[in-house]
């Protein structure tokens, strides 16, 4: 492929970052019935926090189970079977928080029907406290007009920025795909690359791992294009 064939976008990719402030709700559960009730009525930002905060808080590994509901059901209620079911909910399958909430409820309700008596109580001090997440979306000075520039910025941008574009904008802002795939396809016609990025199961990687995967996919795309000498980004320097 000729280097000239790397298209330049009319609209650049504007890298944003997001930082989160956690808020307490005063809601707490000591057994499964209480958890279910809160799951049904709590704000969406509560469901979002308990299914996503591990991604930014555990950078060194992907802990199992990856959501707080599963973790609490396993560690505090010792309901191993239900915990496994909650653990294996694949968040990628749900386009928004509403549908994810519905899935959590549908997983717990039948279990509760069958195992109504006696309900296991969490030991004192191990109650589930419900927390909500307030996100602050922060524009950065980094932009990309083509794949070279995109890769260069991706190498140096913070994990919070990658998190925002890969996770938050899809499930919380309810976009059809992650921001990277949408821009790559719509603005510079990188349909194949966009699909490959969209197919990554981001919830099973650390964010650094995800950065590496995407860069590898871009690198493979570059290797199809002899003559390119590596990515050059725009925006102020941040030492990587």
């Amino acid at each position: 492929m000729d280097p000239e064939s790397l298209r330049r976008a009319a609209q650049p990719f504007q890298f944003k970052s997001q930082l989160q402030l956690r808020q307490l709700t005063g809601l707490k559960a000591t057994n499964l019935a209480q958890m279910l009730q809160i799951l049904k009525s709590a704000p969406g930002s509560v469901i979002y926090h308990h299914t996503h905060h591990f991604l930014q808080q555990h950078q060194y590994l992907t802990p199992e189970p990856p959501n707080d509901f599963a973790y609490w059901v396993r560690e505090s209620l010792q309901e191993i079977k239900l915990a496994e079911k909650l653990t294996s909910i694949n968040i990628c399958d749900y386009p928004n928080i509403r549908s994810l909430r519905e899935k959590l409820i549908q997983t717990i309700e039948p279990f509760l029907e069958k195992n109504r008596h006696p309900l296991r109580e969490a030991p004192e001090g191990q109650e589930m406290h419900f927390i909500k997440c307030v996100s602050f979306v922060l524009p950065t000075p980094f932009t990309a007009y083509d794949l070279n520039e995109f890769a260069a910025v991706l190498q140096k941008i913070s994990i919070h920025s990658i998190y925002y574009h890969m996770f938050e904008s899809r499930i919380r802002l309810e976009k059809p795909s992650n921001d990277f795939s949408l821009w790559l396809e719509q603005e510079i016609g990188e349909t194949d690359l966009a699909k490959k990025i969209a197919r990554l199961d981001p919830y099973t990687h650390t964010i650094e791992g995800l950065r590496g995967k995407i860069l590898k996919l871009i690198d493979a795309r570059f290797r199809q294009t002899p003559g390119l000498d590596g990515p050059k980004g725009s925006g102020p320097e941040v030492p990587a």
């Binding site: 808020q23 307490l24 005063g26």
Partner: peptide, 14 residues
């Protein structure tokens, strides 16, 4: 989180 109480105002966890 365990310090949280039911309040009429937002309560940040820091």
């Amino acid at each position: 989180p365990s310090f949280s109480q039911k309040l009429l105002i937002p309560q940040a966890l820091i």
